[in-house]
Design a protein around this nucleic acid. Structure first.
Lengths: 205, 205
DNA sequence: TTATATACAAACATGAATGTATGTAAAGAG
DNA sequence: CTCTTTACATACATTCATGTTTGTATATAA
C-alpha cells in the first residue's frame, strides 16, 4: 500500500474522471460499468465510490470540468462594451470557440459523450434544461452584438437583431452537432471555419 | 389462449413497437427492459423475442417505421424540376416538414428518443453515419435549389449555392435539436416557423 | 383430417452491475 | 507518540436483465 496524501487523492480523482471519459466514449455511459472505469484508472471500485456517489455524479463531474470553464470563457470572448466591430466579434467568437473544441481533446470527447453517448432521462433530464438555458444565453449575447452591429450600419436591416441572433444560434447548434457526428470528416475544421465566415458574410451589408 | 392469425400477429408486433417507443421515451433505451416493454404491450417477453432478435433490432424497427417514410416524403417535397420559385420551395419544404414533426406524435417521440434518449455505440454507431449521410443528401438538394434560385436572380450572390445550402443545412439541424430539447416551449412552433421565414428572407435579394 | 408451422407464454440458467459493509495502511492532528 | 480520519481495497449480498429452452394452443397447409 502506497502513501496517499491529499494531492495524491486529488490525482486519483482526476484519473478516475479521465478514465470515465475514455470508457464512456467507447461504450456509452449506460454500458460503462464502474469496474471498467476503475480498472482503467488503475484503482478499484472502492476508490470510485469514495470520490463519487455513483455513476451519475461521476458523469456530472466530468461534464462540469469542461463546461464551467467554457461558460467563463464565453464572458470574455464576446465583449459587449465598446465594440468597434460587433459583427467581426461574433465571427471571432465562433471561430475561436470552435478552434478550442477542435484542439482540446478533453473538451471534444466530453461534447461527443454528451451529444451521442448519453441518455437524458431521470437525473439527467435537467441537464437538457441547462443546455437550452445556455443556448438562450448565447442567443441573448448575439442579440446584443447584432444590435450594436445594426447601430453601426454593419448589417442588413431585413431582420431584427433578435431574429438575426436566432438564426445564428441555430446555425451554431447545427454546426456543433454535425461536427461531432461527422468524426471522420478530415476537412471538418476547414468546413466549419468556412461555414462561419460565410454565415457572417451573408449578413454583412 | 386466444386465436392468433397472421394479422393478429402483425398487430402484436406493432403494439410492441408502440410500447417500446413509450418506454424508451420515459426511461431511455438502455434502462428500458424488454420485460417493461412487453408488459406495457400486454404480452410477455416471449412475444418480443419472437418478433425481434433483441432490443437493438426492436429499436431499429421503431426507427425505420418513421424514417423510411420520411425519406420518401423528402423526394416529393423538394421538387427539383421546373421550379418556378426555388427559394419558396425551400421554405415550403422546411415548414411542411416541421409541421409534420410537430403534429405527428409518433414521429416526434421517435426523434426525441433518437436525439436525447439513445447512445450511439457498437451496433448503433453506424446509425450516426446514416444520419450524417441523410444530412449531406439534404445539403445536396438544397444546393440544387439554390442554384436554380441564383439562376432566376432570386437570391443574393454573396455566396455560392453550395455555401448557402451548407448554412441552411446547419440551420435546419440546429432547429430540430433545439426544438426537441425545448419540449416545454409553448410557442415552439411559432418560433420555428418565424425562424424559417426569416432564414429565407435573409437570402432573398 | 392430420401434420406441421406459427405465435406466443412460462420456466430456467446465467451473468453482470450495483450498493454497502468491512478491513486497513498511511496521513494528519493534538 | 497516540488517536482519529483519510483514502482507498476487498468481500458480500442483492437485484435484475438477458438469452434460451421448453411447453402449448391454434392456424394453416396438404
Amino acid at each position: 500500500m502506497v502513501k496517499k496524501t491529499k494531492e495524491d487523492a486529488e490525482k486519483t480523482r482526476e484519473s478516475i474522471i479521465d478514465a470515465a471519459r475514455t470508457v464512456f466514449l467507447q461504450r456509452g455511459v449506460s454500458r460503462s460499468s464502474l469496474e471498467q472505469i476503475a480498472s482503467k484508472a488503475g484503482v478499484t471500485r472502492g476508490a470510485v465510490y469514495w470520490h463519487f456517489q455513483n455513476k451519475t455524479e461521476l458523469m456530472l463531474a466530468l461534464r462540469e470540468r469542461v463546461f464551467l470553464p467554457l461558460i467563463d470563457q464565453m464572458e470574455d470572448t464576446i465583449s459587449l462594451e465598446e465594440n468597434l466591430d460587433p459583427l467581426g466579434s461574433i465571427e471571432e467568437f465562433m471561430c475561436s470557440r470552435f478552434e478550442h473544441l477542435e484542439s482540446c481533446q478533453e473538451t471534444r470527447e466530453t461534447y461527443e459523450i454528451m451529444m451521442t453517448k448519453c441518455e437524458y432521462v431521470d437525473e439527467f433530464a435537467n441537464v437538457l434544461q441547462q443546455i437550452t438555458s445556455n443556448c438562450s444565453i448565447i442567443e441573448d449575447k448575439l442579440t446584443t452584438c447584432y444590435e450594436q452591429a445594426q447601430a453601426k450600419g454593419q448589417v442588413t436591416i431585413k431582420m431584427t437583431a433578435r431574429e438575426l441572433a436566432m438564426d445564428s444560434n441555430l446555425f451554431w447548434i447545427g454546426l456543433l452537432h454535425l461536427w461531432i457526428k461527422d468524426a471522420n470528416g478530415l476537412n471538418a475544421k476547414k468546413y466549419a471555419m468556412d461555414a462561419i465566415k460565410n454565415h457572417i458574410k451573408l449578413r454583412r451589408k
